[in-house]
Structures are given as structure tokens and as C-alpha cells.
């Protein structure tokens, strides 16, 4: 596993925008224990700026009223939180059993060649980032790819070719 312990500073202060702020307040009412807000708050950050910076963790910790060290723990524990900026299109290819058997590797090989990046990397132009992930829960339509959270099922290299052209 890679070293996800190092956080990065974005260099600018962070605050929720109006929409996330409202969502945060809505969620706050839902949990008897404010520490429970850590996970959804991290999602809100990622939703807003694409990744989770030092500043945003500090912001959320203070907002929740918990220790920054505790939010830091959670953010680095779950691999679906991005601790550095990702490509404009973040491609997750499932590598677990069903997808594996039904040819996820061809897709990964194709993407490596086409985008010039290996899993865990970001293309130089910042457009794409590639990641292999564990089961996405859509095994029935394996192999499965997720791009910016959106599912693409029964993927093939041909289908991906078409898809990529729309993502330029």
C-alpha cells in the first residue's frame, strides 16, 4: 500500500460553499455524536474541491469540534478519499474477482497505453488519473469502471475508446 500519511497544503483557506454548508448542517442534526460527521464531511470536501487538503481537514475538524488528528486518521485510513489533486476525470477500474475474470486487465493495459499513466498516476495534462479499486458492488455487470463516481458496466476496450473520445 502506498504511503498516504503525508497531507498536502493547497495554499488557500478552505470553507464549505453554500450548498455543502447547508448539507453539513442538515447532517449535523442527524447524528447524536458529532464525531460521526467526520466521514460525510470528508466526502463534502472531496465533492467541492476534488481532493482533501490540510486546510480542509483543519476546517472540518474545527467545524465539528473534534481533533484535527482524528479527522487526519480517518482521511488517511479510507483509500477512497483523495489526499492530493486527481485528474479531471478520475478513472477507477475494479480489480476484484468478477471484474478480474472478465478482463479488467485488458482495460487497464489499454488505458496505460492510451493515457501514458499507470494506476496511481495522473496524466501530465492533469486530465486523467487512474486507479485500481476493490469490488464496486456491480459484479453482475463486470467488468466495471467508475469515472468521477459514474458507473460504466460491461466494459470493453472498444467501448472505452468511444468513451474516452467524449472525455477530452
Amino acid at each position: 500500500m502506498s504511503n498516504r500519511a503525508e497531507l498536502i497544503e493547497s495554499g488557500k483557506p478552505f470553507a464549505f460553499d453554500a450548498e455543502r454548508d447547508a448539507e453539513f448542517e442538515r447532517l449535523a442534526k442527524r447524528y447524536p455524536n458529532r464525531d460521526s460527521l467526520i466521514l460525510p464531511s470528508l466526502w463534502l470536501i472531496q465533492d467541492q474541491q476534488g481532493w482533501i487538503s490540510v486546510e480542509s481537514i483543519a476546517y472540518v475538524a474545527d467545524r465539528i469540534g473534534t481533533f484535527a488528528s482524528q479527522v487526519y486518521e480517518v482521511a488517511t485510513f479510507y483509500t477512497m478519499y483523495h489526499l492530493r489533486p486527481m485528474g479531471k476525470y478520475h478513472i477507477c477500474v475494479c480489480r476484484t474477482l468478477s471484474c478480474y475474470l472478465l478482463g479488467k486487465q485488458q482495460i487497464v493495459d489499454y488505458l496505460q497505453q492510451e493515457l501514458g499513466i499507470r494506476p496511481g498516476q495522473i496524466s501530465e495534462d492533469g486530465r486523467f488519473s487512474l486507479e485500481e479499486v476493490e469490488c464496486l458492488g456491480h459484479c453482475g455487470s463486470a467488468p466495471v469502471v467508475q469515472i468521477n463516481g459514474e458507473f460504466h458496466e460491461n466494459m470493453t476496450v472498444d467501448k472505452f475508446k468511444e468513451l474516452l473520445s467524449t472525455l477530452k
Binding site: M1, A5, S69
Partner: peptide
């Protein structure tokens, strides 16, 4: 109750750390 320390990351990469700047 100052909570400066945490165990971050996981598996054999887990380590004790402070949050940057705190």
C-alpha cells in the same frame, strides 16, 4: 483532552503523527 496525536494511514504504513501545524 488536547488530542494532538493520531495514528494515521494503515497496515504496515500506520504511524503516529501530529496534524500539520498542530
Amino acid at each position: 483532552k488536547t488530542g494532538e496525536l493520531g495514528i494515521v494511514n494503515r497496515t504496515d504504513q500506520a504511524r503516529v503523527n501530529i496534524f500539520p501545524g498542530r
